[in-house]
Deep mutational scan, measured.
Amino acid sequence: DAPDEFRDPLMDTLMTDPVRLPSGTIMDRSIILRHLLNSPTDPFNRQTLTESMLEPVPELKEQIQAWMR
C-alpha cells in the first residue's frame, strides 16, 4: 500500500498530481477539480477555493513517481 502522505485525503487513492490548497491540505488535482465543479470551496474548511489557488507540489509528485517504479 502507498504511504499515507501519497494518498488523497478525500478519496484515499494514490495521488498522481498533488496540489496544495491554501489551507495547507495536499490533494490530487483531479479530485479537487471534480469537487470544485460542484462547490467552489475547500472541502475541509468550506473557504472559497478556485483552481487558480491550487499550488503544485512537484517534490511530492517526484517522490510518488519514484515509489511507483
Rank of each mutant, 00 (worst) to 15 (best):
E62H: 11
T41I: 09
D4K: 15
P22A: 04
L10Q: 05
I31D: 03
L49G: 00
R34L: 14
E55W: 07
P22F: 03
D28G: 01
L21Q: 01
T48Y: 15
R20I: 07
P22C: 06
R7Q: 06
L33H: 07
I64V: 07
V19A: 01
E62Q: 13
A2E: 07
P43Y: 04
Q65D: 14
D28L: 04
P43W: 04
P56V: 07
L54D: 03
P9W: 07
N38A: 12
V57I: 10
T50W: 10
S39L: 07
R46H: 15
A66Q: 13
T13D: 05
R34G: 11
L54C: 05
F6H: 03
M15Y: 03
P9G: 08
T50M: 10
K61I: 07
D4S: 15
G24D: 03
R46K: 15
R29H: 07
L14W: 05
L10R: 03
L21S: 00
D17V: 03
I32D: 01
L49R: 00
M15C: 07
N45Y: 06
R69T: 13
K61F: 09
D12R: 15
P56Y: 08
D8E: 03
H35F: 11
D12C: 15
L49A: 01
T16Y: 11
D4P: 15
N45W: 05
I31G: 04
D28M: 06
E55H: 08
N38P: 00
I31T: 14
D1A: 13
T50N: 13
M15H: 00
S39V: 08
I26Q: 01
L21H: 00
L36C: 06
P3C: 09
Q47C: 10
Q47G: 10
W67V: 03
H35P: 00
D12A: 12
P18N: 01
W67M: 04
L36A: 00
S30I: 12
P40E: 11
L10N: 02
M15I: 08
E59D: 12
F44G: 04
S39K: 07
V19W: 06
T25N: 11
L10S: 05
N45L: 07
D17M: 05
T50S: 12
Q47S: 15
T16S: 12
D42V: 01
T41D: 07
L54V: 04
M11S: 14
V19C: 07
P3M: 05
I32K: 00
L37S: 13
L33Y: 07
E59H: 12
M27C: 09
D17F: 07
S30H: 14
T48H: 15
S30F: 11
P56Q: 08
P56M: 07
D28Q: 06
H35L: 12
N45G: 09
Q47D: 12
N38V: 14
P56R: 08
L21N: 00
Q63P: 00
L60G: 00
D4G: 14
T41R: 08
L10T: 08
